[in-house]
Amino acid sequence: MPSFMTTVKSSVGKKFLMAITGLAMIIFLIEHLTGNFLLLQSDPVPYNKYAHFLLSFGWLLIVAELILVAFLVIHMISGISVFLKKRQARPVGYHVQGNAGGPSKKTFASTTMIYTGIIIFVFLAIHLKTFKFGPYYETTIDGVVMRDLYKLVSEVFRDPLYVGGYVVAMILLGFHLRHGFWSAFQSLGLYHPRYMPIIYGLGILIAIMLAVGFLGIPIWIYVREVVLKGAI
């Protein structure tokens, strides 16, 4: 019986971890996007109340955040390990590279996972620094003093450069998930000839929805805060 660490480091165990952590992060992204749609309203109250509601969980929220960070770290370590091992496994490459088509699922997305992943990480670092650990504005809603995140977000997305960077990062996230979603099911051993094409299609749909959703918000805020305000 191999030890826990042997399993985790094996080619199968490693992908198992990647899949679990990847899917968990996708579930988080869906929740994150749904909540953030409140930013589309020109009334800051609902969004600030939602953010305050999340913060009111206190230590529970911190535990959840720590789990997410741990998942991200595990995901990254295994992803980087796949990349390093692949480079060792083929020291001499091909002069001509082909794609056999047919049942192949080798795509631009599937062959750039490590690069899209690293860019997502850089994005995440900037994202957290700007918002979570960014300037602290206060507002009072119904007599309750709370953080005015709505104001911060509206300020940040007035910078077209920032919005542009966001859009690029979210498109790359879309590519990551376009291969990542179905791949996670395959990594968990959940293959079924009937359902796999559905999961593959669902992956493309989720990738597009998350990318468009997350890049739509900053564009919308930019239009609201800069373009429309300038016109009036």
Binding site: K15, S81, K86, Q88, A89, N99, P103, S104, S110, T111
Partner: peptide, 18 residues
């Protein structure tokens, strides 16, 4: 398989195609 130095599977499915 791992000891021989083969890479990990990224689910490209190019194997099935060839």
């Amino acid at each position: 398989m791992d000891r021989e130095g083969f890479g990990d599977c990224s689910n490209h499915a190019e194997c099935e195609a060839v």
